[in-house]
Simulated scan of single mutants.
Amino acid sequence: MLKKERQAYIIQQINIHNKVLSSDLCVQLDVSEDTVRRDLQELAEEGKLIKVHGGALAKSFHFTIESKQVYSLPEKKIIAHKAIDLIKDGMLVVISGGTTMRELVNMLPPDLNATFVTTNVPIALELLEHPNAEVIFLGNKLLKSAQMAVGAEVVQRLGQIKADLCLLGTNSIDLNFGITDLEWEIIEVKKAMIACAQKTVSLAISEKLNTTQRLQVCALDQVDVLITELAPTNEKLTPYAKLGLSIL
């Protein structure tokens, strides 16, 4: 595989999943760690990603004051618009992070009177701009790569909440392995979010369908609703509907 092809593949994976691990890229591309390291360094120098220890992050996923392009923004706006219909006045909603969630928060109706619980710093900051929403930030150790609070205290505090809705940003989703992610600390928080809510909603662009990461967040029987940008009748979603998920 030529360098341009390798780097195009890396950019595609990081756009879809927000983060890549060097060790996974070595296997997927069948190249050495040094080759992957050089590719990531070049892409970082070109401003196409953020190089971190053991891998790289998508620039749009890593929030700063400076505005950045968001991958698949039209699709994420469609997903956000669908999800908003599930949020009602008086609800207690736990919400994770990611660019789709930021679009959702920015679309919330100004007169919506709901309470949002999050461990994600950018989402908390965005929610502070809403005129009527109450914001509860569960803080502890901050994981820099995800800009979210993690750790036993966060998990414990989530266990003391009875939420109406869990809005779950999804890295990968698969019929057999369910929802998967890369980092154990993030997974532990997401598990606690799912456990504390009456209904769990997975938000994912369709490119994340039928993909897997290393660690399981939950099986699909723990997910109530799947929202993508596709029409609910799209054939890609039929197998998920057959497993009992409501499709929006």
Rank of each mutant, 00 (worst) to 15 (best):
G159A: 03
D85V: 01
H17S: 14
K77M: 09
V31W: 10
A80P: 10
A192K: 00
P74N: 12
A56T: 09
Q7E: 13
A149R: 00
L167K: 03
C26D: 13
Q222K: 13
T200L: 07
L143G: 01
A197E: 02
T212Y: 04
K82G: 04
T238Q: 13
D24N: 15
I14S: 11
H17P: 11
S246F: 03
A152D: 07
S23P: 08
I11C: 02
L25T: 15
I10Y: 02
E42A: 14
I16S: 09
V150P: 01
N176H: 07
Q7C: 12
E33L: 15
K51N: 11
T119L: 02
T118C: 05
L203A: 06
I187L: 03
I65N: 08
E126L: 02
Q222N: 11
K51G: 09
S72G: 04
V52A: 02
E134V: 11
K68D: 13
L226Q: 03
Q213K: 15
A124C: 03
N176I: 05
I11L: 07
Y71H: 15
K77Q: 15
T99R: 01
L125Q: 09
K199Q: 03
K59Q: 14
A58F: 03
Q213S: 14
V105R: 01
D181G: 01
K208A: 05
Q160A: 06
R214C: 02
Q69Y: 03
E183R: 09
E42L: 12
S145D: 08
H53V: 06
A204D: 05
G151D: 10
A8S: 14
T118A: 05
L167Q: 09
H53N: 04
A149E: 07
I14H: 12
Q28A: 14
S246L: 12
V117P: 04
T180K: 04
I136L: 15
P109I: 07
I16F: 08
H62Y: 15
L127D: 02
I79G: 13
Q216P: 03
V225L: 14
L138Q: 04
